[in-house]
Design a protein around this nucleic acid. Structure first.
Length: 374
DNA sequence: CGAATTTGACCAAT
DNA sequence: ATTGGTCAAATTCG
């Protein structure tokens, strides 16, 4: 834990402070009759966002910042889930899927599969974009398959830099049967490539850049990976302001030290609605994440991310930059993130759960941000 | 021309 | 034998 860099700590403090400040402001506004409802609403949102961010930092260490233009609505619901079946709201297929997962889980010894979790992403109708989701990484499609019982084929993607950096992350994208605007995205494995935080300001980059690819994929401890990953995705999603519904966070891993408290409480559909609107000020700690990828268009792929780590400054390899390097402005759609996963729900209680889940720190969790955002 | 996608074949897990 | 996942040649894209 010494690893928790000073930077993280500061960010955290910063975030909390920010939240406090916002709350204070809210209080003020509450006493000012003339203040608009909207303003207050906005403050509330900010506060929520602030907390979420702080929590995510704690839980996930990911210091990825969530930065989002101004989505109008996010709903997050999370829980972790051993796919107890009955997970997805709408398709029974997913149900089937979960079953499979479950089975595999039990049969554990067989194949060590990479951690895997699913999220549903909905592209807001009305906006013509049909495609999904660009979650911040650059993916390359390597296959497509018709799935039994599913109307739409499932697309298989792997990290573009797989060969170069040995990043084993893959994802599967499948459009929901009944609601074409929803895509189930199952991620597997964590990105070991430099998740590049995209194109970020050189200044920031320079700081950690040395790390480059040095991260040995195999070395990571899984737990960490998952956590990290999860947060990565989430955050990314946030940033893009898409509607994301994470349905199942099931992760199975062989070596799973323990995930002690994944609060099972979750199942109580907790939805945290937050329309997160980050003000620049709030965001400052994470410039790292500064940009969103604009694209979110192709249904399954949008290559918009950069995992690359080109050591060489000039190195951005020609290609993947699909033109999005400008971050701002892109304001996708209102997003809604719902993480659901059914889990061992037993809890009677409605625990409070935050989007980022477990308020638990993994014992072994270390901030390995180094390579992470470099 | 190189990189990304498509698509049928191949392989592994039920 | 069936189904899901990956490979890889062919094709398309930029």
């Amino acid at each position: 834990m010494e690893n928790m860099g000073e930077w993280e700590q500061r960010s955290l403090i910063n975030e909390l402070t920010q939240g406090r400040e916002l709350a204070r402001q809210l209080q003020v506004y509450l006493n000012v009759p003339s203040s608009s409802h909207e303003t207050r609403e906005l403050l509330v949102q900010k506060i929520q966002a602030s907390f979420e961010k702080a929590l995510s930092m704690l839980n996930c260490n990911t210091s990825l910042a969530v930065d989002q233009p101004q989505p109008s609505g996010l709903a997050i619901r999370m829980s972790e889930s051993p796919p107890s079946r009955s997970a997805s709201p709408r398709s029974e297929d997913s149900d089937r899927d979960f079953k499979e997962q479950e089975l595999k889980f039990d049969a554990s010894k067989k194949r060590k599969t990479l951690p895997r979790w699913t999220q549903q992403v909905r592209v807001t109708p009305g906006t013509a974009l049909e495609g999904p989701l660009d979650d911040g990484f650059s993916w390359r499609k390597y296959g497509q398959k018709d799935i039994l019982g599913a109307k739409y084929p499932r697309g298989y993607y792997r990290c573009t830099h797989r060969n170069v950096q040995g990043c084993l992350a893959t994802k599967q994208v499948q459009r929901s049967d009944d609601d074409p605007t929803i895509f189930d995205i199952t991620y597997r494995g964590r990105h070991t490539c430099n998740l590049a935080s995209h194109v970020m300001p050189p200044s920031v980059l320079s700081e950690n850049q040395e790390q480059g690819t040095s991260i040995d994929p195999q070395q990571h401890n899984q737990q960490e990976e998952q956590t990290q990953k999860q947060s990565q995705d989430l955050l990314l999603s946030f940033r893009r302001g898409l509607k994301v519904i994470t349905q199942d966070l099931h992760i199975r891993e062989q070596t799973y030290p323990s995930f002690p408290n994944y609060p099972s409480s979750t199942r109580s559909n907790i939805k945290v609605e937050n329309n997160v609107v980050f003000s620049p000020s709030v965001m400052n700690n994470n410039n790292v994440v500064g940009n969103l990828s604009p694209s979110l268009i192709s249904p399954a792929t949008s290559g918009s991310n950069y995992c690359s780590v080109s050591p060489s400054p000039s190195g951005m390899s020609s290609t993947h930059m699909q033109g999005n390097v400008n971050f701002p402005t892109f304001v996708p759609q209102p997003a809604e993130i719902i993480q659901a996963s059914t889990s061992a729900t037993n809890l009677p209680t409605v625990g409070l759960d935050f989007p980022f889940g477990n308020a638990e720190f993994d014992p072994n969790f270390t901030f390995d941000n180094h390579g992470f955002f470099s």
